[in-house]
């Protein structure tokens, strides 16, 4: 039986600006399962990223509960959330956001050293992960600006998973990459998911969405559709693509 890792209850997020209120998430009840590769899709302004950042403890909900691995995030202070994030969440951003003035290895260690006490083990692990995602040793001392977009995003993924997070959150991780780079990054996501890493990923892209086993479609701040797509497999890709297309057509995408 697969365990629920994140569960929300009546999750609301409202933004106020200039006296007007914008209700971005409306009474969302959602359960995400351990080991799943969950894709969140929806049109612009549907609340995808807002949901991602609320689920990951990056932002506080306006109302409602978020149970993340048995912890109620809504009751956490900002600093408690920070400590929670460093242990249990990993983030991959569309704009990558590596720290400009640090080398590749330091970018990874900046996150890892927050949790690990054994530096030697951590450095070893960081190097292994970098190798696994195709970042070879000659690039470890490079600065982010010296990497290609795909390379930088793969470093971003290593930084995100160095602390073995319970869930890896990704906000349009291939949005700023060309096709070849996208594929290499998506392969890394698939690879780590296959090894048991839970992933929640926001995307507009069909090819990216196909990597997930579940697709949640948001519309106007509510869950409009929820598709069980099954695990990613090169062999069944066409069939899954048709299923996804059909689902999205139903959603009005």
């Amino acid at each position: 039986m697969t365990k629920t890792i994140i569960r929300t209850e009546k999750l609301c997020k409202t933004f106020s600006s200039g006296g007007t209120q914008q209700h971005v998430l409306k009474n969302l009840d959602i359960s995400l399962l351990e080991g799943d590769f969950t894709i969140i899709m929806g049109s612009s302004g549907s609340g995808k990223s807002t949901l991602l950042y609320a689920l990951s403890g990056m932002d506080q909900p306006t109302l409602g509960e978020i149970d993340f691995a048995g912890k109620s995030l809504a009751k956490f202070s900002n600093d408690q959330l920070a400590v929670f994030r460093r242990k249990h969440c990993g983030f991959v951003f569309q704009q990558i956001y590596l720290l400009d003035n640090m080398s590749v290895l330091d970018n990874v260690l900046t996150s890892g050293l927050l949790v690990s006490k054994n530096k030697r083990e951590l450095v070893q692990k960081a190097k292994e992960l970098l190798k696994q995602v195709g970042i070879e040793e000659n690039s470890w001392a490079k600065f982010p600006a010296q990497l290609s977009g795909g390379e930088a995003q793969r470093v971003g993924i290593v930084r995100a998973i160095i602390n073995k997070p319970k869930v890896l959150f990704a906000d349009e991780p291939t949005g700023a990459l060309n096709s070849a780079s996208s594929d290499s990054v998506l392969d890394v996501f698939t690879d780590i998911n296959t090894k048991g890493q839970s992933i929640v990923l926001v995307t507009h892209d069909l090819k990216t969405a196909l990597r997930g086993n579940r697709v949640i479609y948001l519309k106007d701040g509510v869950i409009y559709g929820d598709l069980q797509l099954g695990a990613f497999s090169e062999n069944k890709n066409l069939e899954r693509l048709e299923k996804l297309k059909h689902f999205l057509a139903e959603m009005g995408w």
Binding site: M58, A82, Y97, L99, L114
Partner: peptide, 15 residues
């Protein structure tokens, strides 16, 4: 700002 945002995201506290 962005750098601090990233660091907060990966778990650095305000203090």
């Amino acid at each position: 700002k962005k750098e601090f945002g990233v660091m907060k995201a990966i778990g650095y506290t305000t203090l």
